[in-house]
Simulated scan of single mutants.
Amino acid sequence: MHGVKRSRLTAQAAEAKRLKELSKIESYLAIEQDVLSRKRAKDFSDEALGRTTQLLDLNPEFYTIWNYRRTILLSLFPSLSPEEIVSHLTSDLRLTTSYLLVHPKVYWIWNHRKWCLESVPSGPGETQKWREEFWKGELKLIEKMLDADARNFHAWSYRRYVLASLPISRPKSDELKYTQTKIEANFSNFSAWHCRTKVLSAIWQEQSFTEEQVKKAKDKEFELVTQALWTDPGDQSGWLYHRWLVGQEPPLDILQREIKNIQDLHEAEPDSKWCINALAHYTLLLAQQSTTSDDGANKLRNEAKRLYEILEKVDPDRRARYRDMDAMGKGFLDFTMSIASW
Rank of each mutant, 00 (worst) to 15 (best):
Y68M: 01
S81F: 00
F77S: 08
I72R: 00
R70D: 01
T53V: 08
T71H: 07
D57F: 07
L74F: 07
F77G: 08
R69K: 14
W66F: 02
Y63S: 11
E61H: 11
L58D: 10
T53A: 13
P82Q: 09
L56E: 06
S75H: 14
T53L: 09
L73G: 06
L74K: 13
F62P: 00
Y63M: 08
Y68N: 02
R69N: 04
T64P: 06
S79C: 04
D57A: 06
D57W: 06
L58E: 12
S75Y: 07
L74N: 12
E83F: 00
T71V: 06
L73F: 03
L80C: 09
D57M: 08
S75P: 04
L74Y: 05
W66L: 03
L74A: 08
N59T: 07
N59W: 00
S75R: 12
Q54M: 11
L58P: 07
S81D: 06
D57R: 14
N59Y: 00
L73R: 10
F77T: 12
N59I: 01
P82H: 09
S81H: 01
Y68H: 10
E61F: 04
S79D: 13
T71P: 00
F62W: 12
N59P: 04
P60Q: 05
E83N: 11
P82V: 10
L80H: 08
L55M: 10
P60M: 03
I72Q: 01
R69S: 04
P60G: 05
L58Y: 06
L56F: 06
T64S: 14
Y63C: 07
T53R: 10
L73D: 06
Y68V: 01
W66Q: 00
I65W: 08
L58G: 08
D57G: 05
L73Y: 04
L76G: 02
S81E: 12
E83T: 12
L74C: 07
I72E: 02
P82K: 11
L55F: 03
L56S: 09
S75C: 08
S81Q: 11
W66H: 01
N59D: 13
T64R: 04
E83C: 04
P78L: 12
I65E: 09
F62V: 00
T71Q: 13
E61Q: 14
D57H: 13
S75I: 04
P82C: 10
T64C: 08
P60T: 01
R69G: 05
L58S: 14
L58Q: 15
S81C: 03
F77N: 09
Q54V: 08
L56V: 05
W66N: 02
S75D: 14
N67D: 12
T53H: 11
P60V: 02
Y63H: 12
S79H: 10
S81V: 02
L74T: 06
W66T: 00
R69I: 02
L55T: 07
E61D: 14
E61R: 15
R70Q: 14
I65S: 06
N67G: 15
I65T: 12
T71E: 13
W66R: 00
T53M: 09
T71D: 12
T64K: 04
F62M: 02
S79I: 00
Y68F: 14
S75M: 07
N67M: 07
L56H: 10
S81P: 03
N59R: 14
